[in-house]
Design a protein around this nucleic acid. Structure first.
Length: 233
DNA sequence: CTCCCGCCGC
DNA sequence: GCGGCCGGAG
């Protein structure tokens, strides 16, 4: 399959069904999750969010006022817990500066997409992927999210070099997606994550992969599971 | 042991 | 570009 992100979306949706990520959660919860999930599995993030909620700290005002020693034990299970305590509080301080401490969903309401994106990137602990996840899933802005799964999949499909830059890959996705289509962008990223966890893992399991016939990686013999027992290492 | 929806500071 | 941050699951 030549590079075609809409076709990819179609095939993944056929394989895995619609995902509807984060529809029920509050925007603030999505923002917290986006920060906590940095280099961390989502199951641990859910635990931490539950613990914050039970402690009554799942709102920006409370998080900002809380002592770091209060937050750290609750974030411990996500790893980098001291770092993430600082990042969460930095983000809440940013919400306060923007005048939406108690209305996080209104963040950047008056800003255009790229102005708001630049603001987010200026916050300590918010990089491109975190910023775009917040824009797309918490604030419902139309922007394509790139992550490690996206890079890996694009490379294995034969669409890119091994390490395309974030901006380069994002531009290529944006060039093919209907402008302003939020739902397609949300579903595409969600489905790429599912694909990345299920089949296109760092140790790929290509045998039952829905993209097997479209993928140059599998066709090149990249399926490591095929090699188990044949290699000594 | 590796891997997990990265980012910062050097 | 690279190491540090960090715990938990497989």
């Amino acid at each position: 399959m030549p590079e075609d992100w809409q076709e990819l979306l179609t095939r993944l949706e056929r394989a895995f069904g619609p995902q509807h990520w984060w529809p029920a959660d509050s925007p603030f919860e999505v923002m917290v999750g986006a920060i906590l999930t940095q280099n961390t599995s989502w199951t641990q993030v859910e635990r931490a969010i539950d613990q914050l909620r039970e402690a009554g700290l799942l709102n920006a005002g409370a998080l900002l006022e809380a002592a770091p020693e209060t937050l750290e034990p609750l974030l411990r299970c996500t790893g980098y817990y001291r770092l993430k305590t600082r990042r969460l509080q930095a983000f809440c301080a940013f919400l306060k500066r923007e005048g939406c401490l108690d209305r996080p969903e209104r963040l950047g309401a008056a800003d255009d997409l790229y102005c708001l994106r630049r603001k987010l990137l200026s916050v300590y602990g918010v990089g491109e992927e975190t910023a775009d996840s917040i824009l797309l899933y918490a604030l419902h802005r139309p922007i394509a999210v790139v992550d490690a799964y996206t890079r890996r999949l694009a490379y294995r499909l034969g669409w890119t070099d091994p390490k395309p830059s974030y901006a380069a890959l994002q531009d290529r996705m944006e060039a093919q997606l209907p402008p302003g289509d939020i739902q397609k962008r949300q579903e595409l990223h969600a489905l790429i994550v599912v694909q990345g966890k299920t089949f296109c893992r760092s140790r790929p399991s290509c045998r039952e992969c829905p993209l097997r016939r479209d993928c140059t990686y599998g066709a090149r013999g990249g399926d490591r599971e095929d090699l188990v027992g044949l290699r000594q290492g």
